[in-house]
Computed example of a mutant assay.
Amino acid sequence: MSHPAVPDDRPRKVWIPPAISTLITPVLGFLALAFSVISQMVCDACSEAENRSYSASFYPAWTVLCCGVGLALVVLLASWVLTRRRPAAAKFLAVAAPATVFLAWVFFMALVDWP
């Protein structure tokens, strides 16, 4: 007795966008954090007033960048969780994770009062 073939309606290879995002997002996050730490050296030769202004704007911007990178990692994890249940949402989140890192870096650059 043979069983009728049941068509598999699930989309194939939905794991590829989260896998690519897993390769890209941590690297972008590391580069964004490394650049922001190194950017503190821009104010080594600043006057006292410029240094005070730079430091006052740097620390809130650093917090925004760290929260943005953390949010990107949460979005990346969510893209893996939703891979089988909601493939379209998983693809969207896989694209949104590196975009979140980039957006956090843009906010960092905009918030810092550069000398």
Rank of each mutant, 00 (worst) to 15 (best):
L111W: 06
P17V: 06
I24H: 00
L76H: 00
E50M: 13
G70K: 03
V75D: 00
L73Q: 09
A99R: 07
F58G: 01
V27G: 02
M41W: 06
V95H: 06
V112R: 06
C66N: 09
R85G: 00
R52I: 07
A90R: 01
F35R: 05
A104R: 12
S36L: 09
V75M: 07
V69I: 14
R12W: 13
F58A: 05
V64I: 12
D44A: 10
F102K: 03
A96D: 03
W105L: 15
P26T: 03
S53P: 07
V74F: 01
G70W: 04
Y54I: 08
F107H: 13
S57W: 11
P60I: 12
V106M: 13
G29Q: 03
A32I: 09
A45E: 12
V106L: 14
S57E: 07
T25N: 04
L28A: 07
A96K: 04
Y59H: 10
R86M: 02
V14S: 12
V6T: 13
A97R: 03
E48N: 12
A34K: 01
P115N: 13
G29M: 06
I20G: 04
A89F: 06
V42W: 09
I38W: 05
P87Y: 03
V95D: 01
S79G: 04
V112F: 04
W80G: 04
Q40H: 08
E48G: 09
I20A: 08
P87K: 02
A99L: 15
R84Y: 04
R52L: 10
V75I: 15
R86F: 03
S79N: 08
P115D: 11
E50N: 11
R86Y: 01
G68L: 10
A78P: 01
P115E: 12
